[in-house]
Design a protein around this nucleic acid. Structure first.
Length: 227
DNA sequence: TATTGATCATAT
DNA sequence: ATATGATCAATA
């Protein structure tokens, strides 16, 4: 047996090995090894699974900005799945700037920096399963290929250009084939400085970029088929 | 019932 | 206040 939490991984291969090591464990078993208590449900602990996995695998970034494993340039994301392999939720990637959008380019965007190398860890997320019984699945590393990058870039450019033009009234979670923009705030009343269609200062709801569940599901299934 | 809009806890 | 980790829950 290897003791948990694992030390900070020195290489991507080491991180992968750690993730494979905890695959098959239930969240209850993993939490017990870390001396943590598992909440009865996630209503008041929405980040529990992600934080638990970070701790187990030796992530050190905490809630600081940037990737979970800065030295490796790897972002860790849990992926809630059901028994059949369907993704149950979209995946939050990063907050979106709603003002001062001039000159932002895809290659230097926070979105691209976040997703250029992701270690996905599927975790059972069916709500009828108690949290402690949910099992951790096999991890897989994803670096978007040219086609995937082009698809995400197209969505990103549409959404960002609309915000840059102040077209917030036309924005909704319906836009974007694979990447969407949705509210991301503690309260519905939260506001950030932005500019309206006439360039006048205004306040808008904070927003975040999310990968649609069907997109992450395609990644998962492609991995399962061997790629 | 799939999806969008709203929300919760914690760290800095 | 804002960024981290996301899932909840109302709506269409």
């Amino acid at each position: 047996m290897i003791s948990l939490p694992l030390p900070p991984p020195r290489t991507v291969l080491e991180l992968m090995a750690g993730a494979r090591h905890i695959a098959g464990l239930s969240l209850g078993e993993l939490a017990a090894e870390l001396g943590q208590v598992v909440p009865a449900d996630l209503r008041r602990a929405k980040g529990f699974v992600g934080s638990l996995l970070e701790r187990a695998l030796g992530a050190t970034a905490g809630s600081r900005a940037g990737p979970d494993f800065p030295e490796l340039g790897v972002e860790l994301k849990t992926l809630p799945v059901d028994a059949v392999g369907h993704c149950l939720e979209s995946t939050f990637i990063c907050t979106a700037e709603v003002g001062d959008l001039a000159g932002v380019e895809w290659e230097h965007s926070r979105l691209w920096e976040k997703i250029r190398c992701v270690l996905w860890v599927p975790v059972e997320g069916t709500r009828t399963l108690s949290v402690d019984q949910r099992r951790i699945g096999a991890p897989f590393l994803w670096q978007p290929d040219g086609e995937e990058e082009a698809l995400l870039r197209a969505d990103w450019e549409l959404l960002v250009s609309m915000m840059a033009r102040g077209q917030f009234d036309s924005l909704s979670g319906h836009l974007g084939q694979h990447l969407q923009l949705r509210p991301k705030a503690a309260k519905g009343s939260s506001r950030r400085r932005a500019f309206d269609e006439d360039g006048a200062r205004t306040l808008e709801q904070p927003k975040g970029f999310y990968l649609r569940a069907r997109f992450t599901e395609a990644l998962l299934h492609r991995h399962l088929l061997g790629n």
